[in-house]
């Protein structure tokens, strides 16, 4: 059980001759939030979809809990207890909030074969995320804050060990961000590992245990929030100073 939840080894991805991610290595351990940040075009989204299995890297390997999943499709990785949210909301718009979560639970039961009670799982997640009051609302009628929360809830009901969050705070107001942050911290207390791609730096700096900074497709810095914030290379990368060594 010592293997990291997800590990990238020397991942290289190229799109039409342009290298988007260049020999990136990174590993995420259970029970904490691992931030993944960097300026536009740094390679965050590419690394994210490599993790999901939507893009196969040109070189390098991805391991889920020690198992090589580099050549595995997304649905098979999901069955290894990995879940994600989408920045461009990918909710089941015409279904109710309750049915969104329930369908996810049913899909999970379809491959987990464990006779768990989908209704009860759904109720639990509704309680935990505070979406109970909205249960009958249609998903595409939700305001952004709740829609993002529903993305998280739907991922949670599949009982993941690793959760990948793609800008979960985009479009949230302050209270909503606060609520999200406490929800995420509560989840890690139960041993869940979270990878967080996020632009809201206040949130990232507050809740992440480790942060990996990408720039021009490479790892610029890995460290705790304090270290990252003071790092000259990181500041340079964000502000576009010419002295940055790549």
């Amino acid at each position: 059980m010592n293997a990291p939840l997800i590990e990238f080894r020397d991942i290289t991805v190229t799109f039409g001759g342009v290298t988007a991610v260049d020999k990136v290595s990174m590993s995420v351990v259970p029970g904490g939030i691992h931030g993944l940040i960097g300026p536009n075009g740094a390679g965050k989204s590419t690394l994210f979809i490599v993790a999901c299995g939507l893009v196969r890297p040109r070189a390098g390997a991805v391991y889920l809990e020690g198992r090589d999943v580099t050549r595995m499709g997304p649905h098979r990785r999901a069955r290894l207890r990995m879940a994600r949210t989408f920045q461009q909301l990918e909710l089941f718009g015409v279904l109710s909030v309750y049915d969104n979560i329930r369908t996810a639970a049913e899909i999970r039961r379809g491959w987990a074969h464990d006779h768990s009670d989908c209704g009860r799982d759904t109720d639990e997640v509704l309680e935990r995320t505070g979406l109970r009051e909205m249960a009958d609302e249609r998903a595409d009628r939700l305001p952004t804050g709740l829609a993002r929360l529903l993305e998280v809830a739907r991922a949670l009901v599949t009982k993941p060990r690793l959760l990948l969050l793609d800008e979960p705070a985009a479009g949230l107001n302050e209270q909503e961000t606060l609520a999200l942050s406490s929800l995420l911290q509560g989840l890690t207390d139960d041993g869940l590992g979270i990878v967080l791609v996020e632009h809201d730096m206040d949130l990232v700096m507050q809740i992440c245990r480790v942060i990996t900074v990408l720039n021009m497709g490479q790892v610029l810095k890995t460290g705790n929030p304090g270290e990252v914030r003071k790092d000259h290379a990181v500041i340079g990368a964000y502000l576009g100073s010419a002295e940055v060594s790549v």
């Binding site: 809201d200 730096m201 700096m205 929030p225 304090g226 914030r229 500041i235 964000y238 502000l239």
Partner: peptide
């Protein structure tokens, strides 16, 4: 003031 705005403030 940029650096603080870009990289957030550590509580």
């Amino acid at each position: 003031k940029l650096s603080g705005l870009y990289l957030g403030n550590v509580a």
